[in-house]
Design a protein around this nucleic acid. Structure first.
Lengths: 254, 254
DNA sequence: TGAATCATTCCGTATTATGAAACGTATTTG
DNA sequence: CAAATACGTTTCATAATACGGAATGATTCA
């Protein structure tokens, strides 16, 4: 169903098969996959066989297809230059232990933020993001900071492209309101998300920069709104700064 | 260089491009990638463009190609049925804090173990595995336990297929020695790796089972040999068992 | 400013992937 | 237990598809 077309047919089809498998989130039969993607069974079989050969897909005892471990090999190298995930892991765990809430590391990918790494607390009620999932820039704390990096003109373009869809009553779906928010966030060096992506969930985010000083992503704490504390702000900033330092970042002045 | 051929040409080529990019471990130019893979620049360009379209590859400001975050989406769903990684994360951190050494979660993929998740301690000297990297079954603690699951005949077949290559002086490269080791390990419910994969590194491993009782992977502690302690054995077993329980595993008797 | 290097696009061609149909194999049903 | 059904796999003629040589743009370097 979720199709994408461009460039090379076989690759489009292979991707849609892998997507179908990921969406299913469990081992799937050829029948299911070919139905799901609308591919002729024979074609789907051939492509799946090729992907299997390369380890991108594994096969069950029951002849079911599943995503293969080779993907991990590639995913491990996904980063923005240096390995941000690597640098972030320890700091994220530290921050999670400080605040007792979920900590997320996100990277920008076009008009979206991608959740790249997380540390979740051991409590009953918590906010949980799936690694690899996405959210639009304007509804996340880190996303708003990223927008602030590229200037007002770029934000307006973003607004025009996406239409600033509203996820909750609090989503900044008016350009001017968004610009206002972005500007104060930029000045303060941190951003809040006041139930703008999901009702009941609040975030505090700060940017992570690399050796060249450009923002490669961000760190954020996500908590049920009523548990979020202002006291966490310096902690989030501190953790983000420490990750940045590990990436070679040196503060502008000293 | 590292070629693989089978089934569909474009997919073989796309995979080899992604591989080249992963091997490079940094953003790479079209020139480099086409040279590395032996593909005509025009062909490499077309394939890379298609992969980029799908987010499997991202592009730098300097027109360099890098692995894209979409891979994370897929990698996040790589598992053996239920999400082992998910279930394991907390337990792994607990175990790491108990023993103060690196903890690895591994899955079997054919004749190899794949490192799927890790928790590393915050100390200067530590053993570190890259997520997605691999090792043959017979040189790892968990691998030997996995071999023990399928019986002596299967082990002999494995030995014949792979030739039991020796990585250190301690590697069990004689079938009978290996079988002996596997059998005692199976009976004890845990396995040791006494510098069999790398000199100076010792491991303690235990299996992780799913709801059907079959081994889906394993948990292991890796430490410099002189720091490894026998007291850790029950801790490793306990953590592995807790992960198994989260996957729905129920001990055979009670 | 000119030269050189690399990325990108174009396009005729043959190779490559395609999908209908036939064949195996396992599972279900009467 | 046999027949039927459903699904996975292989084959093969065909045309659509990806190929790669060459020409064009865009940068970088001298």
């Amino acid at each position: 169903m979720t199709e994408a077309a461009s460039g090379i047919q076989v690759i489009d089809r292979a991707v849609s098969l892998l997507d179908a498998l990921a969406r299913e989130n469990r081992p799937a039969s050829l029948k299911v996959l070919s139905a799901e993607t609308g591919l002729h069974p024979s074609t789907a079989f051939r492509i799946l066989a090729s992907l299997t050969e390369h380890g991108l897909i594994g096969r069950d005892s029951a002849n079911l297809y599943r995503l293969g471990p080779r993907l991990l090999q590639w995913a491990g190298r996904v980063s923005a230059g240096l390995d941000v995930r690597e640098a972030a892991r320890a700091e994220m765990e530290w921050l999670r232990d400080q605040v007792g809430e979920s900590v997320n590391l996100t990277l920008r990918d076009g008009d979206q933020m991608v959740y790249v790494e997380r540390a979740i607390p051991n409590r009953m009620m918590r906010v949980e993001q799936v690694v690899g999932s996405r959210a639009p820039l304007h509804v996340t704390a880190v996303g708003k900071l990223m927008l602030g990096e590229s200037g007002a003109a770029a934000v307006r373009e973003y607004a025009r492209r996406t239409g600033l869809p509203a996820y909750t009553a609090n989503t900044r779906s008016e350009v001017d309101v968004l610009l206002q928010d972005i500007e104060t966030s930029r000045r303060r060096g941190y951003a809040l998300d006041d139930e703008e992506a999901e009702t009941g969930v609040g975030c505090i985010g700060a940017l992570v920069r690399d050796a060249t000083g450009s923002a490669v992503g961000g760190l954020s704490v996500s908590a049920p709104m009523e548990r979020r504390r202002e006291e966490w702000i310096p902690l989030v900033r501190e953790a983000a700064l420490r990750i940045s330092r590990r990436l070679g970042y040196h503060a502008p002045d000293g």
